[in-house]
Design a binder for these strands. Sequence first.
DNA 1: AATGTGACATACC
DNA 2: TGGTATGCCACAT
Length: 116
Amino acid sequence: MKPKQVFDRGSFFADVFEVVRLVPQGRVTTYGAIAKYLGTGKSSRMVGWAMNAAHTAHFHVPAQRVVNRNGMLTGKHHFATNTLMQELLEKEGIVVKNDTVQNFKSLLWDPSVELL
DNA sequence: AATGTGACATACC
DNA sequence: TGGTATGCCACAT
């Protein structure tokens, strides 16, 4: 089942969107990092789910900057096309090879660190 | 209130 | 190297 309008202000989803929008261009973050920053810690799955809801949001959410802990574009299948996510990232100067962000560790933007 | 779900993370086989 | 299992938690029905 999929949520319809899940971006009410004050909700967990809204917080996720806000953090994702704060990710600088050319940088990436992880589900776990966002979850940790939001304090929910272990609910990294919810972040991914929020991204799913982001698809229905009325504002742009750079979901392509959110990858799993390996820098892998696990969510690419949720974009319009299989290559869209990678193209968006490369457009920002991020090198993506084999569905994985190259130099991922140095490109990582951890909100719990950067926004601290 | 109970159940199902998920774009994760980790552990185990 | 890769599949399966489990923990985890917010949200929809």
